[in-house]
Computed example of a mutant assay.
Amino acid sequence: METSELVKQIKRSFRLYMNGVTAASMRCKGLEYKVNWGVSQPDLRRMAMQYGKDSALADALWNEQGVRECRLLATLIMPSDMMSEEMAMRWANDITSAELAEMLAFNLFQHLNFGYTLVRHLLDKDDVSRICAYNLMCRLLKRGEQPDMETLDKLLAVASVDIHTVDRQLLHSLINCLQCAEQINTEKALEVRQLLNNNGFDAF
């Protein structure tokens, strides 16, 4: 089946899993999408298993801008070994929600061999992109991938500003990331600990 026809088939299938209550709850929490069927992430994972890994289909789904389920499904079926740095940067430049930022980091970006390049790129961008950066940094650290000094310096510089944010999702991602960097004992662990302590997050 042609990729375009597969995309149409997938979009039609979302109706089978739609959950209006969940979609409404997301809107109340500030998760705005042009189209949101309220399909649960477990259901999306089951759909991903059905279609398997497919880079062309994943990119086509990602290009369905504003459709929540298409974009989340894209993060699940994109083969990490077939995602170029150019494509990853394009996706990174097009993050539109905290949910998507978290799923990109967890489902896909952490498996790329240029993860810290993506972290530095995302740290230069808007709030939702930085949510992705902090989540990605945390995942890479937990995978045992030691960051370079350039990434650690940039993380601390941006985090020292973001730690004063009123955006709870951004702050939560940031604190998790900093605590992970401290516990894993990176070369900047002491500076990370001081940043947390100085801002009252030593026992966060």
Rank of each mutant, 00 (worst) to 15 (best):
C138K: 15
Q183G: 00
F14P: 01
A60E: 03
C138V: 05
M87Y: 13
K11S: 12
L31K: 07
K11L: 15
G144M: 11
A58Q: 01
H121L: 10
D202C: 02
C28F: 09
E150Q: 13
L118W: 02
Q183S: 06
N198V: 04
I131S: 07
G38W: 06
F204W: 15
F114Q: 07
D59C: 08
G66I: 14
S25Y: 03
A101L: 10
H121D: 07
S173A: 15
M83N: 13
G20R: 15
L190A: 13
Q194K: 13
N185H: 12
A159Q: 09
N63R: 14
R193S: 04
L190Y: 04
D167L: 13
M26F: 13
T186P: 00
Q194S: 13
E191P: 01
M47F: 04
L156R: 11
A74T: 08
L122A: 04
E191Q: 15
R193D: 01
M89Q: 11
A24R: 14
R46C: 07
M89P: 00
I77M: 03
R46K: 15
N63Y: 02
G30W: 01
N93Q: 14
E150T: 12
D59F: 14
A203I: 07
Q65P: 02
Y33M: 03
E69N: 09
L195N: 05
D126T: 13
K154D: 03
N176E: 10
L16K: 07
C70S: 14
R130Y: 06
W37Q: 04
D153F: 12
I10Y: 05
Q146I: 08
M103K: 08
K29C: 02
Q50H: 07
M18R: 11
R139F: 05
K11G: 03
D81E: 13
Q169V: 10
D202Q: 14
Q9R: 08
S97W: 00
S80I: 06
L190C: 07
Q183T: 06
Q110P: 04
Q50P: 01
V128S: 00
T96R: 09
L141T: 03
F201R: 04
A133K: 03
N36T: 09
E182W: 01
E5H: 05
L196T: 06
P42Y: 00
L196D: 05
M26Q: 10
S25A: 12
R71Y: 03
Q50T: 10
D153I: 08
A24H: 14
E150R: 13
S25N: 09
L44I: 09
L178G: 02
M18W: 06
R168K: 15
D153W: 13
D43V: 07
Q146L: 05
W91C: 08
Q41I: 14
R143I: 06
G38Y: 05
N185T: 09
D94T: 14
T186A: 03
E5Y: 02
H164T: 02
F106L: 10
